[in-house]
Nucleic acid binder design. Sequence first.
RNA 1: GGGCUCGUGGUCUAGUCGGUUAUGACGUCGCCCUUACACGGCGGAGGUCGCCGGUUCGAAUCCGGCCGGGCCCA
Length: 864
Amino acid sequence: MASSDQLPKNYDFAEVEERWRKTWRDEDHYFDRNSKKPQFVIDTPPPYPTGNFHIGNALNWCYIDFFARYKRMKGFNVMFPQGWDCHGLPTEVKVEELNHITKNDVSREEFRKMCRELTEKNIAAMRITLRKMAFSTDWSNEYITMTPKYYSKTQLSFLRMLASGYIYQSEHPVNYCTRCETAIAFAEVAYEDRETQLNYFDFDGVEIATTRPELLAACVAVAVHPNDERYNKLKGKSMKVPLFGHDVPVVQDEAVDPKFGSGAVMICTFGDKQDVHWWKQHNLTLRKAIDRQGKMTEIAGKYKGLNTTECRAAILADMKEKKILHKQEKLAQRVGTCWRCKTPIEILSERQWFVKIKPDEIQKAAHQVTWYPEHMLLRMENWVEQMEWDWCISRQRIFATPIPVWFCKKCGEMVVPDEKDLPVDPTLVKPKHPCKKCGSTEFAGEVDVLDTWMDSSISVLNVTGWDGNGKPPFFPAQIRPQGHDIIRTWAFYTILRAVALTGGKPWEEILVNGMVLGEDGFKMSKSRGNIIVPEEILEKNGADALRQWGAMGAATGSDIMFNWNDVVSASRFQTKMWNITKFALIQLEKGGFDKDAPVTALADRWLLVRLSDTVEQVSDAMEAYQFDVALKAIREFAWDALADNYIELVKGRLYQQDASRASACLVLHTAFDALCRMLAPFTPYFAEECYSYFNPGQSVHKQPWVSFTYDDEAARVEGNTLVQVVAEVRKYKHDNGLALNAPLGRVTIYAPHSVNDEGDTGRTLNADVHWRTDAAKLDRAITDIDFNRSVVGKTFRKEGQAFMDAVKALSPVELEKPPKTIRINGVETALPENVFTPKYSYMEEGAKVDVLTIGDVIVTIAKK
RNA sequence: GGGCUCGUGGUCUAGUCGGUUAUGACGUCGCCCUUACACGGCGGAGGUCGCCGGUUCGAAUCCGGCCGGGCCCA
């Protein structure tokens, strides 16, 4: 044990946190592949290396670290890996911005190198924040998706799914961002409300309303509702497209809304998802009017080369001139945009790569996973249910995992590399063998690259040791922690890939965390100026306070509003615990403690009961990932039970030297030790610091989780009485204008049980206290009656009020000794036991005393 | 438009398979520097538990409707 004068007066989180950060060793958190302990593998989210670890990440990582540390203390072999999901457009854009170039100004390889360098720099910055936050990361299991080691696995997974038929290429309409010049998946489409114009114009004698006149060149049919009698004459006919002159068929489809516009719509390839639907349904031709850059194509005739906005204006102008534009009205619409750059997406038909979506398979695996909170499973179900298209995984970008495929220039045969040669970039190297079909050695490497979700959706396979052959050794992982914003992407794709590649669910449990909102209750955003960065909190209050906010801010799974109050109260709790530490150390260093000392005094037994309850509550809450419940129980025990009640009761006893002191010392140490251990997952620096003073050279993080139990029902009941008596007498002093330490005269406590308080009550109240079990010799008068309404209600139902009136009508003697039956509304009825308690006022003969009643305990106070 | 979720003192929050006086934090007011702590202690004020209706002896809690916020999806 350290000496109390080594403890600084104030807890200096900055000094303490930095000191322990330097002391702790990474190896302590390494997953042991040869361990016999049960495994607990976490499929940590790999953040995008923006350079800033934001507060939403911080919350999620707090949760992860709470249970990672807890599970280690519970004896699990924990893997808490750290991944980095590097590829993708944001980095490409940043590189272009920082270097004042566009991706076409340098070679693909040069551009990739710039992206890699920026990413490395960003990762380095974010690692520092992770360390400051005291996350018990397993750095031996760090993975970086842009490294050959990782993306060769991505490529291997591609080849495996290609071989098993999950992956195919085809020409199919896809969501396309013409600014980013790449296809994107539905999960990357964000919808925005915009106002547009609905244009009514004459279409070969029929009025048609459209929001996208620029697609006239791509018109392939006119659709009407089959029951729409207005258009009976058109059935089976074809019509001439205005301005362009090509003929298109008239088709009938139930999905046409006769009330919208004129009830006749033009089908273009493609204005929206509905067009794709109709196009397939009615087997229509394909007219590509927009190219990858968003410019009008050849078939747009004189409009060729214009962008869509220019084309729209030109066509509307021409329609006006030809007097075929009838009217224009405003229309609110929801338009799909690129999640990254907010450019409205186009639907283009392109040769792309797809992953087959098999909804039943995914639903089945999703249901085998335990979801916290449960209702988040619904989001997955809903998303899977409405999937219509397969997952488009090819992207026309640069900084991403290459698609490891070549095509024979002579016969078009697809050639894939040997698995042992992975990773490959087919744009840089050639296949090692000639074409099997035609023997040619001329190949074109696939220039498309993979969606970054193809990288991150195998995170769990990567950490569990997947090598391409069935189930990995540590698969499935025990838990996936993630936000609800990426259920439809990361969770969905991961389940899909795990099932496709291993046949099984990826994890046993999924813990979904909420989003962090700003102090104003809105999503944090630059424009609102409500962004809080973790560094700011680390600077002002330290990592432990930030972590406590993460635990206490809201129930696990619900959105959490950032709140400085919670951070402040977290710091205060640390101050309180610091002083408890100091007090305990001062007391225990006087003579140590005897672990076999008999625990005798009521207060001591009571605290151990409270501790036992707390340990049970906290353990249960940790098992259920209810960190708010757990930390709240810890704080309540420390602050309320230990500091405000127990220590106040026993400090007098601790100041003196007699036999009963040993009991208090043992209890103080037991409680303190348990508190350190229970706090260890939440406030690792603080818990370590406090623990170290009592156990120099030992780490609280290497201790087992608390398993303390103490069963003493009498101590619970009598101890609660004791605490209440003290509280009531304090209030009495307060009400009578006395200082809390003001001396009182004789205080007699008439309690139903004999109490051995070792003099604690007297010293605490500064009074001559006597506990007695005999009846107080007081004249008492009944002033009121307390009813146990839960019993009254259950027993008497509608007669409840009548019963209570009947009881009130009883004589004082009957109230003291209740009869067996009572007359209610003229009916003699059984009187249940303990259904009411008389409230008394007491007068003591002769002596002037004040009387307090606390339940069945009577306290008489003689003023000094 | 559909699905999910939430609405509790000034602010944030617990409780939500019905039951005596609705939890805690921050703020606020009063008293107290008692040998761990004034970054503290003790005490107080402050709530029609979003609104309306229903079920029940009894509703923050269950049911229905409405209003409002958030998220996801059309």
